[in-house]
Design a protein around this nucleic acid. Structure first.
Lengths: 342, 342
DNA sequence: AGAGGTATATGAAACGTTTCATTGAATCGT
DNA sequence: ACGATTCAATGAAACGTTTCATATACCTCT
């Protein structure tokens, strides 16, 4: 183990006082050029590395923020993380990424540790909305927190989210405009706010087209938002009698949509001729599917970026801070999977 | 800002000495049950949270390890991260995830910060092999480091990697066994060791089939390992004259393979009938492609898990440690994209 | 030449823990 | 009953910074 060279040794080698070395590190302009050089040389020679623990201890707080995501293997969240990192980097703040894996207990342990580390703030998509949660304690003790994509019900926090009802409506209206009257919604579980919002949106679209008497919405609930669930749902739909079978399907996310696409193609159902598909999230693999997937695009990176800005704002404000709720509007990206060539 | 309640206040409220509180926290068995309860009550009442900076300062080191990945949005690396997290969790160690984004400068900044934080060890897939690198300094100062998937040329470190030459050979032999004689390799840049190894592997497979005189390998070099590069490469191949055009393609990773698949399908080239495809990595989206992709599977999670175990081992050993190089053998997963039904 | 400034450099205090040598009290064995 | 042993609790020292009030030297102006 490299015996830690400390500021004192540097001072001795450079022939200056301990405080001067600190000044070179933190306020170089206060030190004469000659001594500054001497100190920097000593630092280089000894390979001195600042001890952040001592620094933080003295300062009373760290220089890091944390982002706690539900699933680090989900492309949606990795993009959010990238946005947060970029925004933080511009301010010279480091981001620590924590993965709760949708496990409340693991989330709790992460928050324990983060609080012990006195992080300056936390971006989080919480696992649940338990009112008496670990998260609430963190907030009450004074750590700034911004909610990412799970804003509902937290009036007293900053949050960023996407208007999922609108996203659902865009998808629905697009399919109706394409001539579809029997539409299916595939997604779940319904305990997830985003899923019900998207469902609600497509429902509104169908109701809005009131003059079209025949319009009808089938809902296929899935246990998870995964490719496998999509495949199962597609199998279920393909087995329906031809008469009532939907001609279009709107999926709660792209993983499901990819599963649906895969299973339909396997069964010889042509997409979009026999069945159109619209997904949600517009992850990179949506465009890369063999039948490129239409999808409702969320500004994922922007989500992370804005959340970080709100957090840094709250941190800077030191108490005087008005919480804000930023809601983004999604876009519909039309690709081959729902584009009927005429 | 929550005025930090410290151990001293807890001691006062509980009517014990400062050292006793510390003992309750760290060696509860040394404290009588009565006082322990009194202290714990005081902690709960005050909402006391340990200050990790002070703890670390005293201890001289942290309780965290870090993993620095090339690209946090690449499914390959997120799986490696998950493996590392799981292994670390079992030992009560936290993992900090850092993303270099293939940017050497960003990698350097991360390492600076990690060293200041006195992390106990680092798992890293370095951006480059620069001999006089920041990484080497870190190592020389005594921080244990394990190289992930970039083992070559670092004899004096632990490393984990996958036998990419074998992976390439498996893919090549599979295609030859399927009757293919004109095979293309798509991938790049060749400066990446993994790419040249995989290329080398498929070349060996063709040479091994020496009796097959007609066997021939075309190499299409791409600038990146992305879906877009795959599409471009496929376009290039499709434009070749029918006579010399390959009947099978082996891609350096799955993203490229998905791009190739997409472009070929768009052009009406049937997969696998007209052209077979084998990818590399077996990411989740490989199986979910409309023509499920054959792929060389790497034990991604295992890679992260083993790397973490090696790192923890080195940390524990305190100097007396024999560096080890663990090389995994890849598997070929055969799916529809290379399976010619007869 | 002396008063008032302005740069620089200094050294001690403080941040909140953990550790460890001591002390004090209680229990044990003979 | 008394020394020996065990068990609990104590309090001061140390970890490596940053900060801040103070000291020193050097100018500048009248």
């Amino acid at each position: 183990m490299a015996t830690t060279t400390n500021i004192k040794e540097v001072a001795r080698l450079a022939g200056v006082s301990l405080g001067t070395v600190s000044n070179v590190l933190n306020q170089p302009e206060r030190v004469s050029e000659a001594t500054r050089k001497r100190v920097l040389d000593a630092i280089a020679e000894l390979g001195y590395v600042r001890n952040d623990s001592a620094r933080q201890l003295r300062a009373g707080r760290s220089r890091q923020i944390a982002i706690v995501v539900l699933d680090v293997t989900n492309p949606f969240f990795t993009d959010v993380v990238r946005g947060a990192e970029n925004a933080a980097e511009e301010q010279g703040v480091m981001v620590v990424v924590c993965n709760s894996g949708e496990d409340a207990d693991r989330e709790r342990r992460h928050l324990d540790l983060l609080e012990e580390q006195r992080v300056r703030g936390v971006l989080i998509t919480p696992v649940d909305d338990a009112p008496d949660s670990r998260l609430e304690k963190l907030i009450n003790r004074g750590t700034p927190v911004v909610l990412v994509d799970r804003g509902s019900g937290w009036r007293d926090r900053c949050s960023v989210a996407v208007n999922d009802v609108l996203g659902g409506r865009l998808a629905g209206e697009h399919l109706i405009a394409g001539g579809h009257r029997r539409i299916a919604f595939v997604g779940g579980p319904m305990s997830i706010q985003q899923v019900t919002d998207r469902h609600q949106g497509v429902k509104l679209a169908l109701e809005g087209a009131g003059d079209l008497e025949g319009a009808e919405l089938t809902t296929v609930t899935t246990p998870t938002l995964t490719v496998a669930s999509g495949r199962a749902a597609a199998a279920q739909m393909a087995d329906m009698p031809d008469a009532g079978r939907p001609t279009a399907v709107f999926c709660a996310n792209d993983l499901i949509a990819l599963g649906v696409l895969q299973e339909l193609t396997r069964r010889g159902v042509r997409v979009p001729a026999d069945m159109a598909i619209v997904g949600y999230d517009d992850i990179e693999f949506a465009a890369a599917a063999t039948v490129p997937l239409s999808s409702v695009r969320q500004p994922r990176e922007q989500l992370g970026r804005t959340a970080t800005q709100l957090l840094l704002e709250e941190i800077e404000s030191g108490g005087r801070h008005e919480h804000r709720h930023v809601v983004f509007q999604p876009d519909l990206v039309i690709r081959a999977s729902s584009h009927i060539e005429t």
